[in-house]
Design a protein around this nucleic acid. Structure first.
Lengths: 209, 209
DNA sequence: GTCTATATATAGATAGAC
DNA sequence: GTCTATCTATATATAGAC
């Protein structure tokens, strides 16, 4: 039996509750009771609820962000002409690797990201762009290379549409997978879901105006 | 000067605050002070905050839902072969007509819908499917007609991807429009946003497997 | 670092006078 | 229908003993 320190216990409990219920609906009391630690320890270790939220997201972004950067640099260095589908396939490996990092890590990360964008009035958006803006810029650059027929602005919009598709799908993945099982007797896991959504967004992004 | 009754004053203030800040972050005190009515009147007229949220959404759905049904029935009756783009264009008129119904009605409705799907743990999803499930079924039917090459299951997934795209985009529409203004000096309104997102989802839904 | 106890603020909801 | 006043629950955050 391994010892888990209080800080990690809090992060583990918080991420699950945040992903399930959202940030506003998750109290520090709920987090600390689930983590079986004292209420006051949240403020001792993180300072405030807002900083806890950032720490929860940072734990994922610190793994995902360099993995995606590497994946993108690889096709930048090795390809003369970058195809649309190659670009989006760059997301698959870094996303799935989060499942090894944490149980249901892929789903967790994307749910948190979605809530971060919708719930917090820009705080998290700002935090993400300030601390992980580089990889966003690289991704943007590669999408531009693969879609020379689209303007910068058009790509801006379509990448946000894409973000919405992925984030919403993953935030609802549990319910969607259950419905698919009940209605179509289909067994779909998170990897299968990612492989279904990629053709959808690839077609959307590269569609003519 | 027209007299607006208390109930309507509350609905008007609530929908604006809900769309801007979300349901959890909007207190009844904030709503009633903005509406310049007494705090206790919310419970008198609506019973609870939850029922107020439903009433706010119902005011839009009661206009939108029959308009979409009519629009869909029109192409069912008059077309032998239904094209993908026609289906999604059915959404445009009913959505934009909400701007006549209420100031910034389209934005308001779609923001509320987005928040309803992301924030509330299924309560609103259930409320919507229970009370407005018919038009959802009709829409599903028409999409199937337009995409005979896709299985029922594939359509199920793609329509949920679509829902995610629209709902996330609209919940973030205010921020996105501001960023587009700052970064590209682009003036985009809600109508422009709808016309940008429709080609995206139409391409995604009809893309080959 | 962790605990108890508590300060302070705010939430939704209601009783009862008018 | 509308008001004041208040109940009750819960929130974040912190002070200070250990």
């Amino acid at each position: 039996m391994q010892k888990i320190d209080t800080k990690t216990k809090i992060l583990n409990a918080a991420e699950q509750l945040f992903a399930e219920r959202g940030f506003a609906d998750t109290s520090l009391r709920l987090i600390t009771s689930q983590a079986e630690v004292n209420l006051a320890s949240v403020n001792y270790h993180f300072g405030s609820k807002k900083e806890l939220i950032q720490a929860v997201l940072a734990r994922y972004l610190d793994v995902f962000s360099p993995a995606l950067e590497l994946s993108l640099q690889n096709i930048i260095d090795n390809k003369d002409r970058i195809s649309q589908i190659e670009v989006f396939n760059c997301l698959v490996e870094p996303l799935l690797s989060l499942d090894a990092f944490r149980h249901q890590g892929t789903t967790m990360f994307l749910s948190l990201l979605g809530r971060g964008y919708v719930e917090s009035q820009g705080h998290l958006r700002w935090y993400i762009m300030t601390n992980y803006g580089n990889v966003v810029a690289t991704f943007n650059h590669v999408v531009r290379e693969a879609n020379p027929h689209l303007s910068k602005e058009e790509i801006f919009w379509r990448l946000h549409f894409t973000l919405g598709t992925v984030v919403f799908t993953m935030a609802s993945s549990k319910a969607l997978i259950e419905i698919a099982k009940a209605d179509f007797n289909a067994d779909v896991n998170i990897e299968g879901l990612i492989h279904r959504v990629i053709p959808f967004i690839a077609a959307g992004v590269s569609s003519p105006a």
